[in-house]
Nucleic acid binder design. Sequence first.
DNA 1: CTTGCCCTTGACGTCAACGTCAGGTTCTAG
DNA 2: CTAGAACCTGACGTTGACGTCAAGGGCAAG
Lengths: 148, 148
Amino acid sequence: MRIGEVAERAGVSPRALRYYEEQGLLHAERGPGGQRDYPASAVERVGLIQQFFTAGLSSRTIAQLLPCVDSGQGSPEVFAMLGAERERISAAMADLAAARDALDRIIDTARHPTPEHCPGLREPAWSEYPGPGAAPVPERAGVPAGDS
Amino acid sequence: MRIGEVAERAGVSPRALRYYEEQGLLHAERGPGGQRDYPASAVERVGLIQQFFTAGLSSRTIAQLLPCVDSGQGSPEVFAMLGAERERISAAMADLAAARDALDRIIDTARHPTPEHCPGLREPAWSEYPGPGAAPVPERAGVPAGDS
DNA sequence: CTTGCCCTTGACGTCAACGTCAGGTTCTAG
DNA sequence: CTAGAACCTGACGTTGACGTCAAGGGCAAG
């Protein structure tokens, strides 16, 4: 498989594949003319690499990570790094959730039909309506963790 | 409040605050000597800006966002952008979750005490040990959604 | 007035994952 | 054989959120 086909199937540019090779992430055999020859598994591997890139891992980190994927083994240092990256990802997810909540609050405020900012209007509004019945469920009180 | 104090309280550099001003994210009065003078609310505002930056929003996007925070209103275009950013954040969270799952699988594989890759070793291993008793709870079967 | 710290503007440096261009080579179809 | 497509290496450009350095100005204490 030549570089163009791998690139197209994996949804990346040939330049990216050469960059991956340069960074030691993706090896390729060479044909008699010097052209790269990839196995079919390269497509899946590129997908994994992309996944880690979008998760914020650096090429150097991925370079340490991938041999562990191939061998199914890992030195204790690599193990520690894997755990650290896992934690970074979890922290990033928490940051994203917090930012999304902030966005939601902004959207909620902007969606309020009241032209002025509501100065302590929310709580009294609930007490004005009769209480007994199915609670309207205020929602959005902590980390919803619910997607769009 | 001068720039150094705001920077220290917000946990950013003075350079970052000047950059925010340059990008139209943070306004500051000027004293008679030309020095910036921030209100106390600037610290909180910088925190919000940081939160959006870490969520991957660009300075230009935040610049469109912040007046909406101040006024509590938003034009329909700004509204659409808010929704789009919300979706981007949700997608990024999903990507992070997928990458974390991939990492978990790698860690699980590497943690296996078997020196070779286990070729269909998992299920038989369970049946070899006597069944009745407290189940060891295999875990990690789908999307855990549980943090570290 | 001097010392020293904080502040100012301006401008260039950084880092990572590529994009893009240039000039040459190899493969493939007719 | 010949055109054209795809590939090669090498090198410079891009982008965003700042870091960093340079040269000077404001401000309180002694």
